[in-house]
Write a protein that binds this DNA or RNA. Structure first.
Lengths: 334, 334
DNA sequence: TTCCCCCGTCGAAGCGCTTCGACATCGCGC
DNA sequence: GCGCGATGTCGAAGCGCTTCGACGGGGGAA
């Protein structure tokens, strides 16, 4: 293994000079730097990560905790993970993968052993049990998702309330007066997953603001449930002309169910959704939708962490504005 | 930060004794060990990962390279990742997440900087560009998937050839005489992804062995393509009564297409698939299928790596036997 | 009883890097 | 012509842990 002393000898300088040339923490003459770089290339030098971590008390590794639970849309999780890794690499950091199963102990372990410099936690619940731990940890963290009170934490996510509102505004703008929200399975609300509730809040607030008649319907993530909900909506709210769907697996089955019941989308019923773009695009009827901007969220989380690691201060809450992509599933009320 | 010397002082022993008590590399009297453990607990000691890595030249971290490419079924990738992390934790190791995008440089980097002790590479192609690198690296690796020649490497995967055979044997056992394989998109074969070709090999070999009439049909991963293939099969092979599907996204659309063309599954046509269990279970007609045992593969990869890290020798090829779950989509030939 | 060996423990020497203080050199202003 | 700050480099001291060789004491074999 070639080490920094080898490089130093080869370049005719001291090890510390090589170190400073590498880190840029002290000025090095252009000429010397060049010589050092040549030596590094020639010898194929790679600094030892462990030694570096020990001496600098920085491992240049971030922890990423991914959720495993049922009801989580896996491709979206993967998108987050990839965008976090990609963003981390831009800052010369690597990413350690933790599963939620490891729980609080896992977080404590990687933090206390200095394996990682900072942590990113996905799928935060309103009253997440990990919050006190994260607050007390001696290293910075960023949450993807919002707990009930983000005091002392740093959180980033799509602004789901605004997303709910935006869907409603879109429908209202098209003249719809009676709308419904088909939401996530009941257990998601019980579990107090913040984003689901926030969609409901935004939906309801915007409907009220616009003087619309609105209703909210939690729904299991199974095709059969979609059918039931569709029938129920027709029965209970015959004047319904607009639907917001916040339940990925059910989007297509629900549209199918409406059509099977004789409602054309968008002819008789306009549908908007909060779901990944590729899902909205590939549906039988391409769906007007708001996507979760996984790339932005992941990259944003990393940027926030880097700022914190650099000693900067960051806002407790970062809400990404929803963007509505208009597709074929919505049209003006007939 | 509490360090090993603190523990040693507190327990009235030398630091080396604490170290040996922790690692078990030298005998320590029960009494002393107990005292040390108490001190550790009382002080909340956590060994510093970097220091440990430096002194022992073991980081206790594995690299996992996940694929990003289109045509890869994301939930399966996630399953692999989770099972690797879980298995690694059982061996007191952590997992560093690398994206394929980082390519060979990423592998070299984490290996050369001693950030990781060993590597797991997913989605290996027949003539993968990373193979020479992996062979030359000074740390062990395990491939999930098989290249053209695994010489000098360690590979593990489902035995896709056997899977292809098993599907055919199942159909043959039910009396079917004319069968077809609906495969992956053409580019998957062009790309020389081993597993797709191996399914074809197994399918063809078993069909020949059983004296069946067989045909192979690559197929795009889009519903429209499913419809086309269904029509083509009916036209070109009217006597067809058995189909093997090796193309996740198309499984359901294909069954739909067959039924739309007047063929009942399994009444007129028996269908088997190689796909995740939950997909097979949730289809309109639950599909007789062979699943990719992501848990076993991931855990197996870690076990192999641990054995190699421990100085043991392991077989170059580990093929996991396919298991066929019989469901509602197959029945004896009428 | 003597010798040997094993068990349990210690001390010290690193592992490869960063960083702090020191120092020499140079150019500038006065 | 002198002092001073800026610039560029060096040496040495760790960072916290593992591991090697050494060593004292106790038990078994001869």
């Amino acid at each position: 293994m070639v080490k920094i002393t080898d490089v130093a000898r080869h370049a005719g300088v001291s090890p510390s000079t090589v170190s400073y040339a590498l880190s840029g923490k002290r000025p090095i003459s252009e000429e010397t730097r060049q010589r050092i770089e040549d030596s590094i290339r020639e010898l194929g030098y790679r600094p030892h990560a462990g030694a570096r971590a020990l001496a600098s008390s920085r491992s240049n590794v971030l922890a990423l905790v991914v959720p495993l639970r049922a009801g989580i849309h896996v491709p979206v999780v993967m998108q987050f993970a990839v965008s976090v890794v990609t963003a981390a690499r831009r800052h010369d950091h690597d990413v350690l993968l933790l599963t939620q199963e490891e729980g609080e102990d896992g977080l404590r372990r990687v933090a206390d052993t200095a394996l990682v410099d900072a942590l990113i936690v996905m799928d935060v619940q309103l009253h997440d049990r990990r919050l006190p731990l994260l607050r007390g940890l001696d290293r910075p963290s960023v949450l993807i998702g919002f707990p009930a009170s983000p005091d002392g934490l740093t959180c980033i996510d799509l602004d789901f309330k605004a997303a709910g509102e935006l869907c409603v505004e879109h429908l209202a703008g098209l003249g719809h007066r009676v709308i419904g929200l088909v939401g996530s399975p009941p257990e998601v609300y019980v579990r107090e997953t913040g984003f689901a509730q926030r969609v409901v809040q935004g939906f309801t607030a915007a409907a009220d603001r616009n003087g619309l008649s609105s209703s909210v319907h939690p729904c299991e993530a199974a095709p059969a449930a979609a059918r039931q909900i569709a029938e129920q909506l027709l029965r209970e709210r015959p004047a319904l002309t607009g639907v917001v769907v916040h339940n990925e697996p059910i989007l297509e089955p629900l549209i199918d169910a409406f059509e099977a019941l004789g409602l054309r989308v968008p002819g008789d019923l306009s549908v908007t959704a909060i779901c990944p773009d590729e899902m909205a695009e590939r549906a039988r009827v391409p769906v007007t939708s708001i996507a979760i901007p996984a790339d932005e969220v992941g990259a944003g989380a990393v940027e926030l962490l880097m700022k914190k690691l650099g000693g900067g201060t960051v806002p407790e809450a970062t809400l990404l504005s929803p963007r509505l992509a208009v597709r074929a599933s919505t049209m003006p009320r007939p």
